[in-house]
Amino acid sequence: MFEARLAQGALLKKVVEAIKDLIEDANFDCNNSGFSLQAMDSSHVSLVALSLRADGFEHYRCDRNISMGMKLANLSKILKCAGNDDAITMKSEDNGDTITFMFESPNQERLSEFDLKLMDIDSEHLGIPEAEYDATVKVPSSEFQRIVKDLASIGDTVEISVTKDAVKFSTSGDIGSANIMCRQNKSVDKPEESTEIDINEPVALTFALRYLNSFAKATPLSPHVVLKLSKDLPVVVEYHIPDVGRLGFYLAPK
């Protein structure tokens, strides 16, 4: 049997809101080490990789490895019924055809249970090699969200170029062009506002803004986003979920 209790149920709500427009359905894989998901969007241009560690849950039990197929829109409908301060417990029997979500309000006055039907989903997993990237950039997640939103009003694609002092986002379209530069700034007073660049090689790659805007829906999960770039490789856009795990997005370059 699988049973996991997340005291901060809002985390799960935020994860699902961040990925539900990108992927339609996915298998959630559970084993001893945690709860994970890997899925590509329908055009196979981007990939979502979620991992929530077992020790990030208040209680975690998984007797056998299980894979639970869910339609994200349906999962989202159910999780929207959980309060933001609720604890969420997920339960499923081995070989069961449903997963139960139990929501508990902070004072335990309200307990609700929702069962979601599981489905069989054929999923292809990709092997993502551990790579050393040419450049790793850590920027405030709200800043990244604003940049990709603003640039999408001008163009369809963005060139991200990283040098040792700054990261530059550039686009152009019918009405004109734009570029936004963020300088390295290791703010000690306000660490949440810092921009940090770790570079082996200057790099410049172009990506579709539509996908980056979709990834930015994960902003509420983390104060920072980490971009990992290498020449001719998909970019990694990574949100670290404090004490629990990570939500990573991969996007093939143009």
């Binding site: 990709l126 991969y250 143009k254």
Partner: peptide
């Protein structure tokens, strides 16, 4: 306009 690659051209099956 630059073409959009698919992820399979970068990563193999797991």
């Amino acid at each position: 306009k630059a073409s959009q690659g698919r992820l399979e051209s970068f990563f193999g099956p797991a």
